[in-house]
């Protein structure tokens, strides 16, 4: 089974319909890969992929800004 980062990469690429940069620390929003209206889709796609419910208190865009930040959030 792919590791968490690779699963996240696949999720982001599905939402963005583009290839994700190799650098896991690169901001997906500042790089232009994702826009503001893709963020809700990304959060929903993460919930589906990892079978979790992300609570409202965790709806901070910084947590989903890069592959490494998403990975850190899921590892909590």
């Amino acid at each position: 089974m792919p590791d968490t980062r690779e699963r996240l990469r696949a999720v982001v690429e599905k939402v963005a319909e583009k290839r994700v940069p190799q650098d896991p620390d690169e901001s997906l929003f500042e790089s232009g890969l994702l826009d503001s209206f893709m963020l809700p889709d990304l959060v929903s796609a993460i919930e589906e992929e990892f079978t979790i419910k992300i609570p409202d208190s965790d709806l901070n865009p910084r947590k989903f800004d890069s592959l490494s930040r998403m990975e850190a959030y899921l590892a909590r």
């Binding site: 929003f29 503001s36 209206f37 963020l39 809700p40 959060v43 409202d56 709806l59 901070n60 865009p61």
Partner: peptide
């Protein structure tokens, strides 16, 4: 980013 994320959910 935050406003749209909050509002859409």
């Amino acid at each position: 980013l935050s406003v749209i994320l909050q509002a859409t959910r």
